[in-house]
Each structure stands twice: as C-alpha cells, then as structure tokens.
Computed example of a mutant assay.
Amino acid sequence: MTAHSPAAPIKLPENLRGVAPAPLRATQPKVVALGGGHGLYGSLSALRHVTTDLTAVVTVADDGGSSGRLRQDFNVVPPGDLRMALSALCDDTDWGRTWRDVLQHRFNSETSESSQQLDEHALGNLLIVTLWQLLGDTVAGLDWVGALLNARGRVLPMSCTPLVIEGEARTVSETGEVQLRKIVGQANLARAKNIENVRITPDQAEATPQAVQSILDADWVILGPGSWYTSVLPHLLLPGIRNALLQTKAKIIVVMNLELSGKETAGLSAAEHLRILQKYVPEFRLNAVIADSDGMGSPAELEEVAHSLGGSVTWAQVRHGLEKNVHDPLKLGAAYEEVFRLHS
C-alpha cells in the first residue's frame, strides 16, 4: 500500500495492542478464524462467546463496492471485510456498540444533484484508510481501530498486498463442446457458476507475518463459513498462509455454509465443498467439521470425506430462528465449545 509520512510518529500504546476485556473463563483457547465477509462476521460473533484470545485473518481480494473504489483510488488492501471483522469483535458495551455502528454506517445521498462521491462508502472503510495513510502500516491501523472498539481480539489481513482472485467458468455449447471462460475479480467470480482453476495474483504475494505467526501459535484454527471460492479457498492459495496451515500444531475446524445453492458452488453438496479444499491442497488435513443437520446432502458422504481428511463431523442445529441461512451466534458458539471439548 502507498504510505504517507505522518507529521509525527503515531504508535499504538502497548497496553492497547490486542486489547481484550476480562477472560470469560480461567483457561482460554487460542483461536484463529480465517475467512471474509458475512461468513467470517458470523463465525467471530459466535467465537467471542467462547474465548477472548481470538484473531481474525481476513481475505484481501475484494474489488467491488466501497472497498473496490478505495482499493483502486489509494492502492490499499480492500478495507470492507476487515471492517466487518472488527465490528464483530466490538466490546459489548454502549461504547463498543456505538463505535461499531459508526464503522458500519454507509453514506447515501438524498439528492441526485450531489456529486455522490461518498455514496455507498462505509465510514469505517474511510477511517481505516485514513489510519493507513497516517501510519503507513496496515496492521497498526487495524490495531488502532480495534482499540477504539475495545475489540475482543485482533484483526489481520492475510496479506498486506492487494490480491486479485480469478478463475474459469465452465460452459457447454449447443454442440456439446466444453468451453472455459476466464473470469477476473472477486465480484465477478462470486456471480459465476461451474468455477474451475481458481488462483490468486500475485501468486507469490507475502502473507502478513503476524497472521502466519498467529496460525502457528494457535490451539484452534477455524476455516469457513463463507463464499467457498472467494472467501474460504484463498487462504489455501496464498503460499505463506497455506504453509502455516500445513505446519501448525493447531486443530483445524471447517464450518460448512448453511446455503449450498449459491452461484459459486451451485449444485454442490457439503461433501463436494470439502473435496474442493482437498483438490487444491491434497495435503490439507482437518480435525472436525461443523455442519447443520439440514440441507447438507448425504450425511454419510460428508462424514466419509471428513474422515479421509483426518476428521469427523459434528452435527448441530446452528441456524438462526428467523433467518434460515444465517448462523445463530449462540448456537454456533455452543457447537464450537462442543468440538473443543470432544477434541481436547
């Protein structure tokens, strides 16, 4: 990212680095959650009920909306998913909730005569980019926002280099000929079907050192839920993060989506979602899969694939009562605690 020298050095006070409220219990599992967007937000909203030793590692390939505009205009990693993760970890007080709402506030012009330059920008995205320009340090800027929220954990980008995700969409012509169409950009790939050959560029981008270390130091690593090709898989495509996942002694949990009919993975069962991870990283191993008992396809097939990856499936009712395709934070948190107990 482009650094701007501040008038005077700005350093986050030591007592505010990774600040967290009093522990929920005597011993805290050290948990790292990987993902992006609404899926990671849901996972963090659940995990904050389980531990305060929590780190989010966030994808940085978003190129749509407010994040895409700021990324293009200022040559920074897209701030939107980072903002959402920070909001999920806000302190559960009037202070924390108020600043969460400030971060999430999105501008909408009330007149068509305005320049509309702020339209659809989230204030939190602008605040994050401001801190990046003042500090010239991506991680420090996020730590400052976390301190403002009194966040229950830390948020890190998977890389401090803006990444591009691309792939190919498979189509069949009227004559039966299979054709592959190249698709570039997360926003475009998220709307595609029958995706193959997903990759990120630059393919040798450096992973954020603090993110790599957090994975190596963790007791548990959570992958998913989220858009499978654009939020979950990218962590296995970036060499530094992939190597950390293969080397860590942490136990790995994969959380299945509740909605399996999204465009990215339309028609694929939960077992086939796991096979995607296995296809791109054959050495990948896991300890547990959390899946809702409804809408996952064949339970036996999912259990078989999980077993081939070294793990088992924990079936749990984790759907929100009013929004069937949204994880309930308390139910998912209880499922995490059950897995921690079973695999400790």
Rank of each mutant, 00 (worst) to 15 (best):
S5G: 04
L12E: 07
P13V: 15
N15T: 09
V19L: 06
A26V: 11
Q28C: 03
G36Q: 03
T51E: 05
D53I: 03
T55W: 13
T59Y: 01
T59P: 09
G64K: 10
G65C: 10
S66N: 13
S67K: 02
L70Y: 10
V77M: 06
V77R: 09
R83F: 00
M84D: 03
R97S: 03
T98G: 14
H105S: 14
S112E: 12
S112K: 11
L123C: 08
L126E: 08
L126A: 04
L126Y: 01
I128K: 12
L134M: 14
L142Q: 05
L149A: 12
P162K: 07
L163R: 08
I165K: 05
E166K: 06
S173H: 06
G185D: 01
L189V: 06
A190N: 04
V212E: 04
Q213K: 12
S214F: 00
L223Y: 02
P225K: 12
T230W: 01
V232G: 05
G240D: 07
N243E: 15
L246A: 05
T248S: 11
K249S: 12
K251M: 04
I252N: 02
L258K: 09
E259S: 10
L260Y: 01
K263W: 00
T265I: 14
A266R: 09
A270M: 03
A271P: 02
F284Y: 02
L286C: 11
M296W: 00
E303V: 13
E303D: 11
E304A: 15
H307F: 03
Q317R: 13
L322S: 10
V326D: 07
H327T: 04
L330T: 09
G333L: 06
A334L: 07
L342A: 09
